[in-house]
Design a binder for these strands. Structure first.
Lengths: 169, 169
DNA sequence: TTTTCCATGTAACTCGTTACATGATTTC
DNA sequence: GAAATCATGTAACGAGTTACATGGAAAA
């Protein structure tokens, strides 16, 4: 999808960085919201360069591995805003996997069905708790916004499952 | 993902069918919940056969194109239940794309930001309405369950966005 | 008679993942 | 002295998409 590109361009907009730095930052600070594997990051940055969205300069400190520092070009700036606009304006598709499974719920025997749903419910609760316990100040306000958004959806999902289980009794 | 396999195996469980029939049914009746492209369907069915999850027999009516009718083997039955169990028990990952965009919300000028969010909100509302107007009896009860689930999450998402927009004033 | 439907597929491509490779340097 | 960190990548693979190919039958 495009969210990986959006993410990298967005991070480069606030500060020029090298690939490892971007990857590391995402893994440490944004793992609750998204994930980006190293090869994906590097190959995207390559692509950006080929498309003229970034400039590269190589830096080196002592005998450390050389770093390729990427800086957004004006065309990269434009692309970022375009992508952001586009992504924000459109509604992403929901989690299909779970809903497909729900369609076959009646193919399980009641006890097993119940066990599965209970399991799912408890996982949902764990995720809700995890996000509730993220300290507010650990992130920028916009990151907190994304976390709030996830929390809202997770809570709604949890409540729905609670309801369903009660109803199936 | 596995939800495509789950879907095909699940449909084959209730009735032996050929590929086109499966694809057609999904497109006509389940498009609100999931989508499956023709080449994906055919290649999955091929794989099922190679793995011994289905048996095949070729049928032909008059001069019509021959049909390859697939029937679940016991091993396919088992695989279906396994997959269903697994999928139901685990929580799928949320829609990452939108949340990544939210992280960069503060990089837009207030008027544009507002416009994007309004656009998104109105799309969410359209989707909610669309699902609300699906006649209850158009589907099996389990399909209705999946639709109910989506509706719940879409409504929560819509309300959250309404809130956000109000708050940004 | 032209379009749509039926029914199957292939080929080329994109995107992402896992596993592996390299080689210095700092930390335990 | 071993392990983790820094920093880059390649190669092989898998899943899914788009576009294309075929060829008869029914519908407009």
């Amino acid at each position: 999808m495009d969210h990986n590109a959006l993410l990298l361009l967005g991070l480069l907009r606030t500060q020029s960085q090298h690939g490892y730095q971007l990857f590391d930052f995402i893994e440490r600070n944004l793992s609750r919201i998204t994930s980006l594997k190293k090869p994906t990051a590097y190959s995207l940055l390559d692509r950006f360069y080929k498309e003229g969205l970034v400039d590269v300069r190589v830096e080196q400190e002592g005998n450390r591995p050389p770093r390729k520092v990427f800086e957004l070009t004006p065309s990269g700036q434009a692309r970022f805003l375009e992508l952001l606009h586009e992504t924000l304006s459109n509604v992403a598709i929901q989690n299909t996997t779970g809903d497909v499974a729900l369609m076959f719920l009646d193919q399980l025997e009641p006890p097993e069905r119940r066990a599965c749903l209970e399991q799912r419910l408890s996982e949902l609760q764990v995720r809700v708790s995890a996000l509730e316990n993220v300290p507010e100040h650990a992130h920028s306000s916009s990151v907190n916004l994304a976390i709030e958004h996830q929390l809202t959806l997770l809570r709604a999902d949890r409540d729905w499952h609670e309801h369903l289980i009660a109803q199936l009794e």
